[in-house]
């Protein structure tokens, strides 16, 4: 990808014109003291819709974060810096530093996540190999057995643990989870928890 969403988001939040909300004139003291850096989600400013539109913007006397520097510049310098937008910074022209790239961090082997499932007590389960192959010569029992899911052994489980990041080790709290009863193993002393 030519750009990352995180970088764009960071750029957006760093410019107060986009990030700033319109805040109520009822509480001007707070508004004036703290130039409110708003939340930006998907590049859309939520505050300009609905109930927030009833609150008027405070106007030009509000010192916005970073803007006071721009006001000190002469028009000529402004034109040089921002030739297209008459003193207003171009949003697209500046990209924030991507602090957390993928380089230097371990990545998940996606093939593992596509094939295996980790239970909360640390075991991995998997489908059986060859469950779709040569079904014509397999009997009913063998076909049924081929459809079942089995545990990986200890060595394989430890290897798979190393192949995924801690995101996949984290406990997931889904409601109506079909694997809910398998996530604990209370009848084994090592994995037993109160």
């Amino acid at each position: 990808m030519a750009f990352s969403f995180r970088a764009v988001l960071k750029t957006l939040t760093s410019f107060p014109k986009i990030g700033t909300r319109n805040f109520g004139s009822t509480f001007p003291s707070v508004a004036k003291e703290r130039s409110l850096t708003g939340r930006v989600q998907n590049g859309q400013n939520y505050c300009n819709t609905g109930i927030f539109s009833r609150w008027g913007p405070l106007g030009s006397n509000v010192p916005q974060r970073g803007f006071h520097l721009l006001k000190q510049l002469t028009p000529e310098v402004k034109e040089k810096l921002f030739p297209l937008q008459n003193g207003t910074p171009l949003v697209e022209s500046s990209r924030g530093l991507v602090q957390y790239g993928f380089k230097g961090r371990r990545k998940t082997v996606k093939a593992v996540v596509h094939r295996f499932f980790r239970l909360d007590w640390g075991a991995w389960i998997r489908p059986r190999t060859g469950r779709h192959n040569k079904l014509w010569k397999k009997g009913t029992k063998q076909r049924k057995r081929a459809r079942t899911h089995v545990f990986c052994n200890s060595q394989q489980s430890f290897m798979l643990d190393k192949m995924v990041t801690r995101f996949w080790h984290r406990k997931k709290y889904y409601v109506d989870d079909p694997y809910e009863s398998y996530h604990t193993r209370p009848n084994f002393w090592i994995t037993h928890r109160r």
Partner: peptide, 22 residues
Amino acid sequence: FYLRIPKENYYKGHHLRRQYPP
């Protein structure tokens, strides 16, 4: 081993599912 196993996609749509801690 980790490529020999057929795909099952246990985690399909995990990034969209909501979690509710008990």
